[in-house]
Amino acid sequence: MSSERVPFPFKIRPLEDDVQKKIAKDFEGYPNGLASCNHWNFKLSATASEEQLEDLYNYPLDPRDVWVVTPPKCGTTWSQEMIWLIANDLDYEAAKKPLMPDRWNFIEIAAIMDMEGLAKTVPQGASDAAFDVKDLTGDPSRPSPRFVKSHLPISLNNPRLLDTCKVVYVARNPKDACVSYYNHNRLFRDCGFNGDLELFVEHFMNETIVETPFIEHMIEAWNLRHHPNMCFLFFEDMKKDLRAQLRKVAAFLGKSYSEEQIDKLASHLHIDNFKKNPYVNMEHINASGAVNTDRGSFIRKGKTGDWKNHFTPEVTEKFDKWMAQKMKGCDLKYVEELDHQD
């Protein structure tokens, strides 16, 4: 592992005052608004520092480590459980621990949360199971092989990442990702969004939500998909034929499993079973008061095409025009509905 520290090449820039006021009004968890970073203005909490990001840019790497990199709500948790089990010889007993922080490090959570907003939105002393950001981040010094989750785009992660570690990238069609992110921002009090879907879509297209934009994030990774250390997956392919994707990831990680083993893993990951799995469904933080449990659970539907149940024709038209502009000149294509889903 190289210990040479690389200077962080970007600046953090606050958004305009009127934009910040709207964000603070619509997202109770972000009273200070957001900030932009990198060449296409990826959004972080306004309280994030360049020192934090430089630390992330120099996050320790080891060739034995496996990363999952995705925009939020693109099947990250599903992929984490899949990757961890495939890499750990399908040890279902050892998987009976929360994904985070026990098995995965979620590296950038401190840079995307506003602690002032957290103090206002999450009841203090709700239980002994305190909502601890450091706990969710995980220990970067834990022995390799480490399993690392990042919603940061490739350009904000360690520039040696792809040349050093195995990276599984998961993309999803932006309409379903937007609906899922809407529910996430209503579920978690540290986000604190209480508006309707139409307002959220406006923020999504204006990229005034933490860890947006999504499309540039995916295009950047798509253009790196042929790197030998990247395995590029689509959420929709996992929904269409999960077993094929399990075999693809197993081969990428140098593992080989029988059809019976693949079938068992596919059953373990099926949405009906996945929703009942307390180790992936964030049930260990529910008691902290950080979750609006009356609004559902962390693992929700896991469907392709659910956006059609939520988007009005007017919203769909706006979103389609916005996407078409974003995707100009790009050969990345999204699947928005499936005839069959596992």
Rank of each mutant, 00 (worst) to 15 (best):
F235G: 03
H184M: 10
R225C: 01
R172K: 10
D139E: 12
S258R: 09
I215A: 07
V170F: 01
E207V: 12
R146H: 02
G195T: 07
R146D: 01
Y181P: 10
R186S: 14
R186P: 08
E211W: 06
V167K: 00
N194W: 09
L242W: 04
D237E: 13
L136A: 12
Y181V: 09
E220V: 05
Q261M: 13
F252T: 03
V179Q: 11
G138D: 05
T137L: 14
E211P: 03
S141A: 12
L156G: 05
I154G: 03
M218H: 07
S256V: 12
F193V: 13
V167P: 00
K255S: 04
N157K: 02
R142Q: 10
E259V: 09
E198I: 15
F204M: 08
Y182A: 10
P213H: 13
N206Q: 15
I209R: 14
T164N: 01
M218G: 04
P174G: 07
I219E: 09
K240I: 04
A244P: 07
D135S: 15
H227M: 02
A221R: 02
M230Y: 00
L187V: 10
R146V: 01
C165D: 01
S150H: 00
G195Q: 11
A244W: 10
V201D: 11
Y181K: 11
S256L: 15
E216P: 10
D241M: 03
P140T: 05
F234G: 04
N185A: 15
A251C: 14
S141I: 02
L246T: 03
N157I: 01
H226C: 04
T212W: 09
P159I: 02
M230T: 00
E198M: 11
D190W: 14
V168I: 11
H226V: 08
L253M: 13
L253R: 08
R172Y: 03
F200E: 11
H226T: 09
F235S: 05
N183H: 14
L224W: 10
A250P: 05
P145R: 01
N183G: 14
Q245E: 11
S256D: 14
N158F: 00
T137F: 05
E198G: 12
Y257A: 06
P174I: 05
E259G: 14
E220Y: 05
V201I: 15
S180H: 07
A250M: 08
F235N: 07
R160E: 06
M230R: 00
V148L: 00
N185I: 09
P145S: 04
H226K: 12
S141F: 13
L162C: 07
T208Y: 13
K255M: 07
H226F: 09
E198C: 12
Y182E: 10
N173Q: 09
G192T: 08
P153R: 03
